[in-house]
């Protein structure tokens, strides 16, 4: 869709790991940038990058086709999840000045999983891919673990938990969803996760420069007090070992 291809580059930034994913777990059936396939085929999982320009018939048609032909639709990256920087678009750019209206893919179709971030990190994409595979093909223990891992990302696609400022995904989510709710405990994860350094920690709390914020939602999603699963983190060691084993050369 309408994106910068950074999310797709982030997939490739798994380097040899991408080859492992393709060798063992994934058949790559469609990709405008990297595969010579013109039409959207039937798919188990579609990773969608970018928001949808509703002024562009082809984009709208393709996001509809993607939903119809995929069992699972994953919004890959902040533009697909929540709109991200395309929320600032107002048209007037050559060579299609009338392209001025961009929406998150979830505004037009049901989305099953969010992978937020601008760009999403290679490790996050890797973790989701391995867990999705284990959910479908693993043994019972692996299925349970992978299911617990993916649950918050599936909930995020349904705008849960609220109130998160969902659909806006700017630094103000931290204020509205965390600080206003009496939940911030000064860990600094938000500041570390901001790709544009819009967040500084002042007296332990995030201070957001809204002029810099691109509305990617990384800060809120990285925050351990936005959503947090004891089921998952209490098993962090075994999950990381499972992923490492799945990716071992």
């Amino acid at each position: 869709m309408s994106g910068c291809t950074g999310c797709e580059v982030a997939i490739a930034d798994n380097y040899a790991g991408l080859l492992t994913l393709l060798d063992r777990y994934v058949d790559w059936v469609y990709d405008l940038t990297l595969a010579d396939v013109r039409h959207i085929p039937e798919m188990d999982v579609a990773l969608v990058e970018g928001s949808v320009c509703i002024n562009d018939h082809l984009s709208v048609e393709e996001i509809r086709e993607t939903r119809e032909r995929s069992k699972i639709v994953v919004a890959l990256g902040a533009c697909a999840c929540t709109g991200n920087i395309t929320r600032f678009a107002r048209g007037g750019q050559q060579n299609q000045p009338q392209h001025e209206s961009f929406v998150a893919i979830g505004d037009l179709i049901d989305v099953d999983v969010f992978i937020p971030g601008c760009a999403p990190t290679p490790q996050m994409i890797r973790n989701v891919c391995v867990c999705a595979y284990l959910l479908l093909k693993g043994n019972d223990d692996q299925k349970a673990l992978a299911g617990a891992y993916l649950k918050p990302l599936m909930a995020a696609a349904k705008c849960d938990p609220a109130p998160t400022g969902c659909g806006h995904a700017c630094g103000c989510d931290l204020i509205v969803g965390v600080i206003n709710q009496g939940l911030c405990m000064a860990c600094g994860a938000c500041a570390a996760s901001c790709p544009v350094r819009a967040i500084t920690m002042e007296l332990g709390k995030p201070n957001i420069d809204r002029e810099l914020c691109i509305k990617c939602g990384a800060c809120f999603n990285q925050c351990p007090r936005s959503w947090y699963s004891f089921d998952v983190t209490n098993q962090y060691e075994s999950i990381m070992e499972t992923i490492d084993a799945a990716m071992a050369p």
Partner: peptide, 22 residues
């Protein structure tokens, strides 16, 4: 602190904005 350890492990499992950190 304990909450920072929680944030750290969440960040390793879900490195949304923590590229190459986990």
């Amino acid at each position: 602190t304990p909450c920072q350890m929680q944030g750290l492990r969440k960040g390793q499992l879900y490195p949304i904005g923590l590229r190459d950190v986990p």
